[in-house]
């Protein structure tokens, strides 16, 4: 779309307006994190710019919660989940899309039906399974139940079906075996769909609260979500520390999304959900 100067100005104005609504809660969070011990947090009208600005809340919050560990755990869990999920979903999706075998349609429809089952329904029995496998209080216990999901299989299967047959034939004539065709030829062709699935999985796992809450018990295994939840126990009600800790917790995520944004949006652009 070609844009003139006034259009651009207007667009920026609207962007800022919407952004303002979305981010107002954060302005308060940030402002609280920067307030001193003697500032009244709940003054009316609200004081947006702290006077004086104090950085010590960040230092204290950083020292009391093992942030590096929580951030590491969260990234580790999210990334491991994404990798495993892409691997298992693409493998299954590939077979369902490109191979002929007895029961293929049946399996596909079963999987399709199960995209609808919510995690919540399974919570209690899933917990019992996880327990029996000895995975309670391990990261594996958080990761494995979501290492494959029906929606992912469905998404990637759809992507595989769009690839022309001749590519596969050519590879077969060159003497490639089935796994090589899958990994060398087919996977690169559905990169956009993989990116889509990766984005969905990453965000879901990053935000997950209930399952890690039930599975993990050792503090050193906690994710950021659980660490922040435990803040109320450790800090009680010191809003300044809670705010500071929350801001700290946001930084790595925001940076991560700033730098991987292209990957996510491009991934979604070409292929996966398109006709």
């Amino acid at each position: 779309m070609s844009t003139s100067t006034w259009q651009r100005v207007l667009l920026y104005a609207i962007l800022c307006g919407v952004g303002f609504i979305l981010l107002t809660p954060f302005a308060w969070l940030l402002s609280t994190a920067l307030k001193s011990e003697s500032a009244d947090l709940f003054a009316y009208p609200p004081q947006w710019i702290p006077d004086p600005v104090v950085w010590s809340n960040f230092v204290k919050a950083w020292n009391i919660l093992p942030f590096m560990r929580y951030i590491f755990n969260t990234f580790y869990i999210a990334i491991a989940t994404v990798l495993l999920n892409l691997f298992f979903c693409s493998l299954t999706g590939y077979a369902l899309a490109r191979m002929h075998f007895r029961g293929r349609q049946f399996i596909f429809y079963c999987i399709l039906a199960t995209t609808m089952v919510p995690f919540q329904v399974l919570l209690i029995p899933l917990f019992i399974v996880t327990l029996k496998l000895g995975l309670v209080d391990t990261h594996a216990g958080v990761i494995l139940p979501v290492a494959v999901n029906a929606f992912g299989i469905f998404l990637l299967r759809q992507a595989f079906t769009t690839i022309p047959k001749d590519l596969e034939e050519a590879a077969r004539i060159d003497g490639c075996n089935e796994f090589t065709i899958y990994s060398r030829i087919m996977l690169p062709l559905i990169k956009p769909a993989l990116a889509t699935q990766a984005a969905f999985t990453f965000v879901a796992q990053w935000n997950d609260f209930l399952w890690p809450l039930v599975v993990l018990k050792s503090r050193e295994l906690y994710t950021l979500q659980l660490g922040l939840a435990s803040l109320q126990g450790v800090f009680g009600v010191n809003w300044r520390y809670i705010s500071a800790a929350s801001v700290i917790a946001l930084v790595p995520t925001v940076l991560f999304f700033l730098f991987t944004q292209r990957f996510f949006t491009q991934g979604l652009t070409s292929g996966a959900v398109k006709e």
């Binding site: 979903c89 299954t92 399996i107 496998l133 494995l144 029906a150």
Partner: peptide
């Protein structure tokens, strides 16, 4: 190809269901 995915779905999904 289908096995690993179905196995995981079976353990963590079908069985609890």
């Amino acid at each position: 190809f289908v096995g690993p995915g179905l196995l995981l779905l079976g353990i963590f999904f079908a069985y609890p269901l």
